[in-house]
Write a protein that binds this DNA or RNA. Structure first.
Lengths: 193, 193
DNA sequence: TCAACGTTTAGACTCGCAGTCTGAACCCAA
DNA sequence: TTGGGTTCAGACTGCGAGTCTAAACGTTGA
């Protein structure tokens, strides 16, 4: 995949819309060309096919998540507060590009080999969150975790699936409400005290 | 889709294996025929195509989840204990058919319209768990929840993504360990007391 | 015993669309 | 001004999904 110039990249979200609505395989390359205004031949000049367009979109989304998460993690608040910020950050990115999220949940496997995708999520999310959990144990705001990787996955899952449950049914993503619910759950749990 | 006789249904997991390994679209119907021993013409007699085979597999998996969840929910334990059982039940079903899970995570959108799938998860999982959360508030073992639907989604997400993170990278699913980690998180939270 | 219907299957056939190729134009940068 | 990277239209190829045919087979139930 050649480096995609910004004026091309800027038009791709229109493709995400198609992928999200019809699914990847009922979307013809010609449709993508029509919707984005990028001629088919040019699309093939930059991408090997629609799957690679989806891969580009995924990559872009993951970079944004990684950025926002990094910012949240690096602030000078308590770990507990920063964890709250991480959750909000992820929801913000997802709310920002609902079509990409919907497209990805439907055809994730075609945006790349699954193990590679798992690895990207690992570096973009699990690793920084794990580090945050350890810092939380150090600064005394979070409990020490025997398996921080497992906890990071669970948090990511809770946020992701909550958001997708709404996006997929075309309900507006009430970001603060979900953030609130997930954060409360993650921090304080369900058990009566 | 005609009702699928059991001797056909019994052979479909072999197709799940293919879908999981190569993805749905690099799997030719002829490959499915070869792997399952069911001739192409017969496959088309029962299914409209490979997506419908995947849909069948998804449906089957969701029925199992629904069954196991229902059993866990209906026992006579405290709500907190039953919630623990629900989490284990879901993990057990997933561990039981890793290929189906991997196939679905890659090509979920082709197993049916996403809103319909969301609806199935809703009845198979969210609804019973929500009911359980309310009972927990009543029996005093769980905190009262302002938004039980949101909590049910988050729990489902935490369990699902945790399990998938392992399955997708072909790591064995250490069921009790994940169950433990997720349950602890969900019940007691991360915040230092 | 036969008739009727559902099922099973091989093999041939059609056709949509992904992906390729060609070749012409264009725009810089050296 | 010349060459390399880019943009693009239009024609072309080929794979494989899905359809169709038609021949068998098995199981009812009359």
């Amino acid at each position: 995949m050649r480096t995609v110039p910004s004026q091309i990249a800027a038009r791709l979200p229109a493709a995400a819309e198609l992928f999200a609505d019809r699914g990847l395989d009922s979307t013809k390359i010609e449709d993508v060309a029509a919707a984005t205004g990028i001629p088919k031949a040019t699309l093939y000049y930059y991408f090997s096919g629609k799957e690679e367009i989806l891969a580009f979109l995924l990559n872009d989304a993951l970079l944004r998540v990684a950025d926002e998460v990094a910012i949240a993690v690096q602030s000078h608040d308590t770990a507990a507060q920063r964890l709250t910020d991480v959750i909000s950050a992820q929801l913000r990115v997802m709310a920002d590009q609902p079509a990409v999220c919907r497209a990805l949940v439907g055809d994730l496997g075609r945006a790349g080999r699954m193990p590679a995708i798992a690895e990207m999520i690992n570096t973009a999310y699990y690793q920084p969150v794990e580090a945050l959990l350890r810092e939380g144990a150090a600064d005394g705001t979070l409990l020490e975790q025997a398996h921080p990787e497992a906890v990071a996955m669970a948090i990511f899952g809770a946020v992701t699936i909550s958001a997708l449950s709404y996006l997929v049914t075309n309900q507006p993503l009430d970001e603060p409400r979900i953030a609130r619910a997930v954060t409360d759950l993650i921090l304080d749990g369900l058990r009566a005290k």
